[in-house]
Design a protein around this nucleic acid. Sequence first.
DNA 1: CGCTTTGTAACGAATTTAGTTACATTTATA
DNA 2: TATAAATGTAACTAAATTCGTTACAAAGCG
Lengths: 136, 136
Amino acid sequence: MINSRLSVAIHILSLLASHPRERVTSEYIAGSVQTNPVVIRRLSSLLRKAGLIESAPGIPGALLAKPPEAITLLEVYEAIFAEENLFSIHSGPNPGCPIGQNIQRTLNASFERAEQAMKNELARQTLAETMEHLFA
Amino acid sequence: MINSRLSVAIHILSLLASHPRERVTSEYIAGSVQTNPVVIRRLSSLLRKAGLIESAPGIPGALLAKPPEAITLLEVYEAIFAEENLFSIHSGPNPGCPIGQNIQRTLNASFERAEQAMKNELARQTLAETMEHLFA
DNA sequence: CGCTTTGTAACGAATTTAGTTACATTTATA
DNA sequence: TATAAATGTAACTAAATTCGTTACAAAGCG
């Protein structure tokens, strides 16, 4: 089971989307997520580097950097998990065995396709749609 | 990143598929995966309960319970991860906040769709195809 | 200048992961 | 029937991961 960072990241963005053009502090967001503000700032840092939010030292609060219609859940996923693969593959299988020798390459191709299918679905969903579901 | 159990499970099944109608011991499989036989038997236990392999105490080795064409990678995934969700959702968001109140339900629907897309792709791939890739 | 907030490093407890030891149970066989 | 070999599973361990926390430098605002 994948960790809850994507979940919290989308929570952060939803909160910003629900306060358009207002700056919302990590303390306030932490109150909604019910966690420590540092947890929020850690994820916000990734979201900022990905160009999804704007924030800066000394200036309280963060803003969405783009309209919610222009933010897909895939962008959020990529911001949080970057180059990480969805599935890990066991390391060091026996190269003296024909299966062991080729299993990593083969599984990599299989898992890549499964991961891509998942990402395609995330790309179909926007933050704007998430907001609609939140308030429906 | 999801743990390497699916990876090892498919390795096990590939090895069994490459020795049709032969019983292959956990010790031998462990030699190919390069791990401890107990790790193999733990996963084999799940595969057996899912009806993918046959094995029994006192009888050395395991066999595929179905032809490789009849085993999809989704079946293997389900055998290993059962009811587990792909993404976790942070627990205890603030119910006093409209976002906090609805985020879990909303994310659950989103993540469910992403997970289903991934599973659909795994369902399209069979162990037989994996074997072809292994030897191509 | 003093207050508040961000950004980030560093640490800790709880959980997960993969490997290991141990052993009861079952079957085949000498 | 006794022995050997393998399975199935519980229990333990070290390492890694996850999430929360403390600490603090740097930045902006009144």
